[in-house]
Nucleic acid binder design. Structure first.
Lengths: 234, 234
DNA sequence: TGCAGACGAGAGCACCGCTCTCGCTAGAGA
DNA sequence: TCTCTAGCGAGAGCGGTGCTCTCGTCTGCA
């Protein structure tokens, strides 16, 4: 093996990329339910059976698209988390950027945060890119806790710690008092973010609000109050 | 027209019910993506084409199931909203009952609160049953505001009213000070509830929490803090 | 009691995911 | 430089899908 990758491997990777790109275009236009391997193959001018050399099943292709979507959302969030901003403003910027991405890529959002398409699956490849948004959130909250700008909860949560060691490790150990329960609390930020975007995108807020963007900001701010983050509205 | 409904109509309604029930069983077992008109017809011992006399398309059948699911969720919530409880305890009971229903009926939940299955649709039949959960939430919050047990927000939300007249009418007019913005705030309760259940059900909380039920309570409580509701944990 | 209209069945169309087998050719290894 | 193998694309085919159309039948309304 003289080369890092042989010509065959390079050709294969390129074709994999073209297939994924074509499928991604179909996904963006018509949604995951309408994504058909045969249609992708047709557009590429090859037999549908040949696609199976590259993706063993339709679900495998869909999984690749899911990973890409997670990465795109994570990247958007990371770019929006401007360290020059205060924690509250930073989180609001992240929320807005994620919502903006979702409005532009509704089908990709549905693929990632909607119902699991086939039975279940969600293979191991998807868990790592899925944590990028969580990491951004944790960085914002823990940063605010560290420099003392995070509000202290009126009273601590009862009961034992609820996050697993995986989460603790990601956070760099358990937070110090008075922020003992900040990890448990702050997951509501993610839930509210994902929930609000899905709520709007899937039509559940139909004709309830006069200004969806303004309401989204409010929802994020109200959710953040319980965590001690102060989101600058208006 | 002597009878309220003729024998033909009665037979038709009965068969419609059987079809929907059979389809519902398939949905509960295998999910919406796997629901096939042909399989339903096969199980009922009739030709697939005959089903089209009763439901003009697969989507129409799915819509009927969506309406049923909305109604079931609404009914669960209404039953859980025990007026003997304080507002916070009442809302916690509603949240828990909705989560419990979703855990028992994951595919139905995904059908209702997951990604819109085909393109979009969500016909007019679905909007009325969809509001039942919202009405329960509004009753809890407005009741607490009326008897003064609802916490007053640290500072009012900036900007004009964000809910439409439809929501105002449902709430029986705009709330009185100091609860002017309670409607805008309280929708975060719905978003957090739906978001948290979906988050757990769709696998996004994978290996993050040691106790999913306890974490759910915490998430609801933290979200409710921003609205002024005090959820009794522990 | 006559008959229109509702009904069920069947064949068929176009599409789907996926498998298998077949020749071919280009690239890897000697 | 030569050989040969492994990867490749194509095609046919299987079982399944949603949906349409047509054709007898037969029921229950008037």
């Amino acid at each position: 093996m003289t080369a890092v990758q042989t010509a065959r491997q390079r050709a294969r990777r390129e074709l994999e990329h073209v297939i994924k790109a074509t499928a991604g275009r179909h996904l963006a236009e018509s949604g995951a339910a309408a994504l058909s391997l045969r249609a992708v193959a047709r557009e590429m001018g090859m037999a549908s059976s040949a696609l199976y050399r590259y993706y063993p099943s339709r679900d495998a292709l869909l999984t690749a698209l899911i990973v890409d979507a997670y990465d795109a959302i994570g990247e958007t969030a990371e770019e929006a988390a401007d360290p020059a901003l205060a924690a509250g403003a930073r989180w609001l910027a992240v929320c807005r950027s994620v919502r903006g991405w979702a409005l532009v890529h509704p089908h990709e959002w549905a693929l990632v945060y909607g119902s699991p398409v086939p039975g279940y699956a969600a293979p191991a490849d998807t868990v790592e890119p899925a944590t990028r948004l969580s990491r951004v959130m944790a960085a914002v909250v823990l940063g605010a806790a560290e420099d003392g700008t995070l509000g202290v909860p009126a009273r601590p949560l009862p009961g034992p710690r609820l996050v697993t060691d995986v989460v603790l490790e990601m956070a760099g150990g358990p937070p110090a008092p008075p922020y003992d329960d900040v990890l448990e609390r702050s997951v509501v930020l993610l839930v509210a973010l994902v929930g609000a975007v899905s709520y709007e995108l899937f039509g559940h807020s139909y004709s309830a609000f006069t200004d969806d963007a303004a309401w989204f900001d409010v929802a994020m701010a109200v959710a953040a109050e319980g965590v001690g983050l102060d989101l600058p509205l208006g």
